[in-house]
């Protein structure tokens, strides 16, 4: 157990825990848009930066990303000092210049009182903030179908050679987790398209509702040992079937008691 002070409050934490995890538990909120529980902390967005010091640091302060900083005994953390707020404002200001059309970015910037960027707007700025959540989650799922390509200001997320990614199963985790909803896909009921790749959907054999892609279902059957027929019925029809099965059993019981 370690004891540290966050914004004047003494807090206890497990040794080795990251500061952000402790802060979340204590309901002390800082923005952290490249952070996701499914993947390791990455430290790209820098918005979760906090000011730290210790009593024996002689007034020296350091600025660290709370997502990656392991808690220490006697740490004094300030999540909203003037310098930290200024850093967050600058970062959001920079995002606003790069992603002028993103509603999400606008919203985050607004929370820090920024409605107009101080910098030159990037005219063809898209909504991808390069948090790399999509690529990291794709890696975590075991597909590694997409990755970041290039470096610096020209960096982007793309499938290999910008062609439909062979390893993508169309699970949509990337799109679901994209903080700016930049990754798009289309679902037509029987087919799905993402990253330029077409997928056939499995539809419920009772009600025809689309369930998931054939590729994803096959992967799950193969790697996770789940019977393929589980994927043939949608959740609602599964519940109906469950009710009918249990109903039959109950009816037997009723008839049993009656006779």
């Amino acid at each position: 157990m370690v004891r540290l002070t966050i914004n004047g409050r003494v807090v206890q934490a497990e040794k080795g825990e990251m500061l952000l995890v402790v802060m979340n538990r204590e309901k002390i909120s800082v923005p952290a848009i490249c952070n996701h529980g499914a993947v390791e902390a990455f430290g790209a967005c820098r918005l979760c930066t906090v000011e730290i010091t210790k009593n024996d640091w002689n007034g020296w302060k350091n600025y660290v990303t709370s997502c990656l900083y392991p808690v220490e005994d006697g740490l004094i953390v300030s999540t909203h000092s003037e310098t930290v707020i200024n850093l967050r404002k600058t970062l959001l200001d920079l995002h606003l210049a790069r992603h002028p059309h993103s509603e999400h970015v606008r919203q985050w910037a607004m929370e820090y009182g920024i409605t107009q960027t101080s910098f030159e707007e990037i005219p063809d700025g898209d909504d991808c903030i390069l948090c790399a959540l999509c690529t990291r989650i794709c890696d975590r799922m075991g597909f590694a179908a997409i990755s970041t390509v290039g470096r610096g200001h020209g960096k982007e997320v793309a499938p290999p050679l910008n062609e439909p990614p062979p390893d993508c199963t169309g699970c949509l985790a990337c799109a679901q987790c994209c903080p700016t909803e930049f990754i798009t896909f289309s679902d037509s009921g029987t087919s799905r398209e993402i990253w330029g790749k077409q997928f056939e959907m499995i539809t419920c054999k009772e009600c025809s509702k689309p369930i998931l892609t054939k590729d994803f279902a096959e992967t799950l059957s193969k790697t996770r040992n789940i019977p393929a027929d589980y994927f043939e019925v949608c959740d609602e029809c599964h519940r109906k079937a469950t009710a009918l099965t249990m109903g039959k059993i109950s009816q037997w019981q009723r008839e049993d008691t009656a006779s």
Binding site: A44, R46, L87, L91, H95, L130, A132, R151, G152, K155
Partner: peptide, 11 residues
Amino acid sequence: ESCGKCTPCRE
């Protein structure tokens, strides 16, 4: 030469 990983350096 920035690798483009973190916002302050890239942007």
